[in-house]
């Protein structure tokens, strides 16, 4: 072995990027949102997040070690990320056993049953969230009110902006400023648009994601909801409310941009973003669920392979 030259095809250098760097980059981008959720939901947010991360990593380890019989890759950060994204999509008073089920659904069904990271069709955290929403609709749709720092399971609950919207109680809404900062009821990571946008700027800066998906979602929702608002302002809320409420920010910035389940070409990403925007607004305004973001992303995840095969990147010298 001594002093034998290595021979390999070019290129001979690598940029040093890695899967774990990207995963931890997203986690760093989620820190502001987590701090805000600690500030508004206190102990509950901490317990739920810790539990979800623990269960996701545990299930990933067990499945890789004993079912797939390969070296566990829990250190790459993707299981931690799934756990954090899953908790950010649930109320902060969710019991731990439900979180454990959600984590199993996310990791086991959403990711590992397809062969692990890179092979899944649907966003794992979203799979877990939808699984819980359908299985435990009561627990999943009662959100604690903000400012109960030491409360967990005993927190008082209240309505969210989107529930108010569905009920037509447009006058009981919090101010846009409160919504922007996150002072409203909702899942623990989705409330503060400001913190999530900070995360988005960080990810743009680190080149973890490109602008195409979030911006196309925001633009589509804004235009669609804006037109409906202009048609009938008393029934349909203003487009700003739509952008700042529910899982819009979290979904558009962190869930829809999941590498594995989003299209690869830029024009494909825009089509995907527009699809999510339209589906979300349709579900929110005309569907029976108050929130449509998860379902919209989930459906578009399923369309992604089709988008990938039709929307090719802009080819050099092509039209």
């Amino acid at each position: 072995m001594e002093n034998k030259l290595y021979v390999s095809p070019s290129p001979h250098i690598h940029g040093g990027d890695s899967i774990s760097k990207n995963m931890y980059g997203v986690l760093i981008a989620l820190v502001p949102a987590f701090l805000v959720s600690l500030y508004f939901f206190g102990l509950g947010a901490l317990i739920v997040t810790a539990a979800a991360v623990f269960f996701c990593v545990l299930f990933e380890y067990l499945i890789q070690k004993f079912l797939m019989k390969k070296e566990p890759t829990i250190c790459d950060g993707s299981a931690i990320l799934t756990g954090v994204l899953l908790t950010f999509n649930v109320p902060s008073n969710l019991p731990i056993w439900i979180i454990a089920i959600g984590s199993l659904a996310a990791i086991g069904i959403g990711k590992m049953s397809f062969g692990g990271l890179g092979n899944n069709i649907f966003n794992p955290a979203l799979t877990g969230r939808i699984f819980l929403l359908i299985s435990f609709p009561a627990q999943m749709t009662t959100w604690p009110e903000v400012g109960q720092l030491t409360a967990y399971a005993d927190a008082t609950t209240g309505a969210t902006v989107l529930t108010l919207m569905k009920e037509g109680a447009l006058d009981k809404m919090p101010t846009l400023c409160d919504m922007f900062l996150g002072k409203m009821g909702g899942s623990l990571g989705e409330v503060s648009a400001l913190a999530l946008l900070l995360g988005m700027v960080y990810m743009f800066w680190k080149k973890i994601i490109t602008w195409h998906i979030p911006v196309s979602i925001f633009a589509t929702v804004f235009v669609f909801a804006g037109i409906m608002h202009l048609i009938n302002p008393t029934v349909y809320a203003s487009p700003f409310v739509h952008l700042l409420s529910g899982g819009m920010m979290l979904g558009a910035i962190f869930m829809a941009t999941d590498y594995v389940t989003s299209p690869m070409s830029k024009n494909g990403m825009i089509v995907y973003g527009i699809g999510i925007g339209i589906l979300t607004t349709v579900i929110r305004l005309f569907g029976s669920y108050p929130e449509g973001m998860s379902f919209a992303i989930f459906i578009m995840n399923g369309v992604t392979p089709l988008i990938n095969s039709y929307m090719k990147p802009k080819h050099f010298g092509g039209k």
Binding site: V7, S8, P9
Partner: peptide, 22 residues
Amino acid sequence: PRNNQYDGVKSCAIASTLYGGE
């Protein structure tokens, strides 16, 4: 005896288009 070490994809087709062998 081997006089170098191939570090590319373990595929004869790819290695043979690159060079003569190890």
